[in-house]
Simulated assay, not measured.
Amino acid sequence: MTRRTETHPDLTDPRVGTSLFSHWRVGTPLRQRQTVEAIADTWRRRPWPTGDLLGYHVYAGHDTATLMHYSQWTSAQAYEAFVKTHRQERVDEIDTAVPDIERLGLGRYRRYRSRERVAGDSRVPGLVVAVRIDFAPEAADRRTDWVDTVLLALADDPVGHPGLISANFHLSDDGTHVLNYAEWESAEAYDRTFAAPGEGIGSPTELWERVRTYPGFKGSTIDRYDHVLGLVP
C-alpha cells in the first residue's frame, strides 16, 4: 500500500543509493495545490511500486508557480525499472487532472556528506532551501573538496547558525553541480541569517573566503520550498 505522510525524509538514510530531484512549473498557487492533490490521489490508488523506492516527497516553491520532487531509490537501476513499468500511467493520470504541466527536467544525484542535525534536535523543518552550486567542467572532480571546505567553514564559524537544522550535499551525476538540500527551522530564521552583515551564511573567515573563491566555482541559485506531500510504503 501507499501511505501519505507529513514526515520529512531522512536524507542520511544509508539505504539510499540514488537521489532524484525534478522540477515542474504549474503556474499558480491554485494549480500548485491541485497538482499536489492529483499526485497524492494517483499514488494512493495504487500499490507501492517497489521496495527499492524508499520515499517520494513533493515541495511547493515560494515562487507560487513550481514544485520540486525528491525521491529516494536504492539504485539507479531500480528507478529505470520503475520507468518501464509504472511511471507513465501515473504521469497520464496527473496530466488529466491538471493539464499543461511543464516538466523542467530530472537530475540524478548521490549524497556525498551532510551537516547532520544535532543529536536530540527534534525540530520539524519549517523551510527547505535548495541551493544549486555550479562548477566549471574542469572542476567536476574537485566538488567533494569544496563540500569538505563548506563543512569545515560551518563548524568553524564563530557566529553559528541556530536556525539551520541540517545541510545535505549531493553531487550531480553529470558532474556540473552540487545540490544542497538545507533544512531550516523557519523562513524567519533563514531571513535573519541572511540579513546579518557579511556575504550570506558565512562569517568573514578564511575558510568561508576559500568557499566563495574556490577555483572552478561559477555561482549558485537558491530556491525556497515548503514540504507539502510525503508518500511512503
Rank of each mutant, 00 (worst) to 15 (best):
186 S>H: 03
175 G>P: 10
205 T>H: 09
186 S>A: 05
208 W>I: 06
190 Y>W: 07
181 Y>P: 01
184 W>L: 08
196 A>Y: 05
184 W>V: 06
179 L>N: 02
202 G>F: 01
190 Y>Q: 04
180 N>Y: 04
184 W>E: 03
203 S>K: 03
210 R>Y: 13
210 R>N: 14
196 A>T: 03
189 A>C: 08
195 A>C: 12
191 D>P: 14
204 P>F: 00
198 G>H: 02
186 S>C: 05
189 A>N: 09
203 S>P: 12
179 L>P: 08
179 L>M: 10
212 R>I: 04
201 I>Y: 05
194 F>L: 13
193 T>A: 15
199 E>G: 04
206 E>I: 11
195 A>H: 13
191 D>G: 15
182 A>Q: 05
203 S>N: 06
195 A>T: 10
191 D>S: 15
200 G>Y: 00
195 A>Y: 11
206 E>Q: 13
183 E>G: 11
196 A>S: 08
210 R>C: 11
182 A>T: 06
174 D>E: 08
209 E>K: 12
197 P>K: 02
185 E>N: 10
197 P>A: 02
177 H>P: 03
174 D>K: 00
181 Y>W: 12
202 G>L: 00
203 S>A: 15
192 R>S: 09
185 E>I: 07
198 G>L: 01
196 A>M: 10
190 Y>N: 05
207 L>R: 15
205 T>D: 12
184 W>A: 09
187 A>C: 10
180 N>H: 04
196 A>E: 06
193 T>V: 08
201 I>E: 00
181 Y>N: 07
208 W>P: 12
210 R>S: 14
212 R>P: 07
210 R>D: 15
192 R>M: 06
204 P>N: 03
205 T>K: 05
198 G>K: 01
192 R>A: 14
189 A>D: 13
178 V>N: 00
211 V>L: 08
201 I>R: 06
201 I>H: 03
204 P>Q: 02
196 A>F: 07
187 A>P: 10
197 P>E: 02
185 E>D: 13
